[in-house]
Design a protein around this nucleic acid. Structure first.
Lengths: 207, 207
DNA sequence: TCGTAATTTGAGTATACCCTCAACTTTGAG
DNA sequence: CTCAAAGTTGAGGGTATACTCAAATTACGA
């Protein structure tokens, strides 16, 4: 077992940024292929979830052979996580992190992610649950993402109510996010569940 | 595609109960084997989750060959679901359904399931999420189980507060269960999360 | 134009899984 | 004791998966 790992092309910024002393020149062809693979993955995930996004399907959709895929990515998981993260970021009410978002904004963004991109949301849930035992790195990424979100919710709560201490705000944020996650999960089991209505009700009771 | 399906031995009550006109006599050997398979599955699930409970592992642990397994069960899923269900029933505060359980009882039972049988709880979550697209029967089973639970929570809430209407009680029950599920999910990602503390806090805010 | 290095190929490896089935052995009621 | 039915065997079918690599091809800076 080695602690080093090969850095893949896709991990470098566009156009040859040196990293750890190693420069990698990117060709246009490679960048385009990378984009096609990411697009193909996004489309497959949005259409049929994780089940549909097999390596074979991704490569066919992207018009690429498996070898090319692995020239650019370390694993299938890598591209899946990247796509899911991009999808979440796409509904962020305050991408710049200016600290101006309200609790309502954040709740609305959460709801929007699940309502507008249900398959992607399910992938997120499944990946988060499945990841636990096996991949430690992925698990930590999910945790970090969650903690950032808790912090933003807590900050928004404190901006709204100056008398809140940081601790109680964090606790309330965890509970509100827990409820939202749970209701979203509820909805993945039964798509007739009125997720939005319940989520808004929960938010009003918990913030 | 056929709408009929073969009934397996394990689906009959012990000792030859006729069902749909077909009687099946059970031998002691078969009953013992069935028990060994269920025990092996429970032990593997509790130890290493779904990942550990492969057919091969189950058969080895039970000291049985694959053919024997399939003489008794239709599929691996069948025995897994049975074990998970039994585990949930094992912490039921009111197994008889006498209608005497309080909200606190139900919350405590929920917490106990996750704290005492974490791996089993994860299996429950994973199975519920994964099941969605593929197996429709399993999905409906999970949904039915959830709805029963909502009903029990709602009933307990109404016993506690006579002024509650059935609708608002149901809504509150859904939200409380959502929060509990979400917090449990949160805890599967990070085992240092103080699940019990947050769950109790959520319960006090939501009931 | 040249040569290095990025990219692509695609057949193949490795592996894991659930499940089947025809032949054989054991059970236990009558 | 008999014998039909229950139970058992275990090799292997079928299918899917993610991933590898040596060799061929292409891009593009110098």
């Amino acid at each position: 077992m080695s602690f080093e790992r090969t850095l893949k092309k896709s991990e470098y910024d566009v156009q040859a940024i040196p990293l750890e002393g190693i420069a990698v020149a990117r060709y246009q062809a490679g960048l385009r292929t990378e984009a096609r693979i990411v697009d193909a993955t996004r489309s497959l995930l949005a259409e049929g979830g994780l089940e549909a996004a097999t390596l074979k399907a991704i490569c066919e959709e992207a018009g690429v052979k498996a070898g090319s895929f692995y020239n650019l990515f370390d694993s299938k998981e890598e591209v899946v996580i990247r796509v899911v993260r991009e999808s979440i970021d796409a509904v962020d009410p305050d991408p710049g992190g200016a600290g101006t978002d309200t609790v309502d904004d954040l709740v609305a963004a959460f709801i929007r992610f699940f309502v507008e991109q249900p398959e992607m949301a399910k992938v997120y849930v499944i990946a988060a649950v499945n990841t636990e035992t096996s991949d430690n790195g992925a698990r930590r990424r999910f945790l970090r993402h969650h903690l950032r979100r808790v912090e933003r919710f807590a900050d928004a709560m404190m901006r709204q109510d100056r008398s809140l201490t940081s601790d109680t705000a964090t606790m309330r944020a965890e509970i509100l996010l827990g409820a939202l996650d749970g209701l979203a999960f509820r909805w993945t089991i039964d798509s007739t569940f009125e997720f939005e209505k319940f989520a808004l009700e929960a938010a009003s009771r918990l913030s």
